[in-house]
Design a protein around this nucleic acid. Structure first.
Lengths: 310, 310
DNA sequence: ATTATTTATATAAGTACTTATACAAAGATA
DNA sequence: TATCTTTGTATAAGTACTTATATAAATAAT
């Protein structure tokens, strides 16, 4: 029972406020998932500064129909984040000219593609067969409850990720992504360097497989299925830190399991480390079970071995 | 140049927020004008309590899809204003049962008619020929800028006030409204009592006129045009304190001036007191000019005499 | 019958605005 | 040229929410 529905037009203001709040919250979560350090409320001010290139506080207030103190507060926040620079106008020392900083320009490049996605998904959300404002509002509220803007955006982003097969031209990317991952969480063992520098001889030529996650024409993740005496080992899983949040790891995992089933393998094994709690949690969700770790395990850093049986 | 327009769907959230803010602001001003001590943001909670009769905080939060702390804050504010009473449920001492207080019930009686007006005017505002949510929003924003919800409501209320002619059945109302006014700003002179108790003989039978302002079938204001040797005097203007804000005084003044012109009188006079600054300001706006006050003016309280010449 | 968990509300702190007011620089006026 | 007004921004305090967390009472589990 949603009382605001029952109140009809009288609650129109409260309802559009509530809708605005949930949409803002969803977009906030999207930025967070994509590791973009940007507040949705800063969007109008930031985009206007970007478009106008140089603009003062009064003009921003006028353009956006927000109070001048509101703009001052946003501008201060954006400067604190280093996204804009503020200079006093030489001809009129009362005026503060605002423009994007270098960091702001880098941020804009990250934001523009996601803004396009947000815009499209929002359009989907608010587009429906209706003739009155109240009905549009109602249908939009219902759609948002069923499948929120947040979910819509994340689903769309996930669809943009495709898994492709080994190609030697990506050897250096394969190396770099995995070294980066190792350096972040552990340290690079000599054996790693050897294998990662020669994926063809160590993996492919040994009847192994390498897959890449491709997102917007860029390789953003790698995974390998290595042919070991005991069975195929899931390994070399690395995701570019810029693209975490898109569940790329899970997408690669889905692909590998499907691939293994099609090959009629009866199991997949992997080595990991208990300190990677999130990863272990996900492996378990996929059905991997912990087994005893052999003394001569292939990696120093491993302290857990898991097997998924089909 | 409204930037948010240009940003298209992306700025949808910001725009509905802005619209919500201006509508709330307009309704707040309406309550203020009508001397109703009520916050528009309290509307959903207050109306729900009224409809449910007895309800606890958790249920309110559920019904209105607002966080529990939000409800707690609203409920505390309403209690502080004396509009609701809170009792702890005897069976479950965690639960706080909220219901309208006597003061709250009186408030509801004041609010219900104005809620109807607000609802109707809002409906007008958001009703337009369009098919998409964005266009509805755009048209509504434009209508709001042209003729705001606030103006629409006040215009409507003013239209509800009509001026009617003398009828002896309203003699006691005529007396009471004027005595109340005198007691608020001055004190009641003996002569006042005499005149106000016998309007027929003192005013009507002396070729004078009495008019009433009628609002929703209730007499809420009075004014008289008294036949004096020098000319007709505008007098006995009183408005019920419950209905200030509807510009009833101005409506009666309009009527009297129109009436005087139709009678081909060449002037209207009035006596007032300089401490009633607002009244004097309005008289001047209508074209009344200050003239010298005779020593033997008819009222002790008067310290200014004004004349409007046609 | 304890103890642990869940439920109902309160409290604290933060965010995104608002209005009111202060202040300094620029422009207008006498 | 001094002063008065206007313009541009800053600061303070308030409002309407939010999330995170605390606390007390009720209920479930042992």
């Amino acid at each position: 029972m949603d009382k605001l529905y029952q109140f009809g037009e009288l609650a129109f203001g409260s309802r559009i406020k509530r809708l605005s709040d949930v949409l803002m919250k969803d977009v906030k979560q999207v930025y967070k998932d994509l590791y973009i350090d940007f507040e949705p409320t800063h969007f109008p001010v930031f985009k206007t500064i970007y478009e106008e290139k140089q603009v003062n506080i009064g003009k921003l207030s006028e353009f956006l129909e927000l109070s001048q103190p509101a703009i001052t507060q946003f501008v201060n926040a954006l400067q604190k984040k280093g996204l804009i620079s503020i200079v006093t106008n030489k001809l009129d020392k009362r005026k503060k000219i605002v423009q994007l900083s270098n960091k702001g320009l880098i941020m804009i490049d990250k934001l523009i593609p996601i803004w396009e996605v947000i815009g499209n998904q929002l359009t989907d959300l608010i587009t429906n067969e209706s003739t009155t404002f109240m009905n549009h509002l109602k249908l939009t509220e219902e759609k948002q409850k069923e499948n929120s803007l947040y979910k819509r955006i994340i689903e769309h982003q996930k669809k943009q990720v495709e898994i492709i097969e080994y190609n030697s031209k990506y050897d250096s990317l394969f190396h770099d992504l995995n070294i980066e991952w190792l350096e972040t969480y552990f340290y690079v063992e000599d054996h790693d360097k050897e294998v990662l520098s020669n994926p063809k001889s160590y993996i492919i030529d040994n009847n192994g497989y390498i897959f890449y996650a491709k997102y917007q024409n860029e390789i953003v993740g790698t995974v390998a299925l290595m042919n070991e005496p005991e069975g195929y080992e899931l390994s070399k899983m690395a995701v570019s830190p810029k693209y975490r949040g898109l569940k790329i790891g899970q997408k690669m995992m889905d692909h590998c399991i499907e691939f293994a089933k099609n090959k009629n393998w009866n199991k997949l094994l992997l080595y990991s480390n208990k300190k990677l709690e999130n990863a272990i949690y996900i492996y378990r969700k996929y059905g991997f079970m912990e087994v005893e770790l052999e003394k001569d395990s292939p990696y120093e850093r491993s302290d857990i071995k898991m097997i998924l049986r089909f």
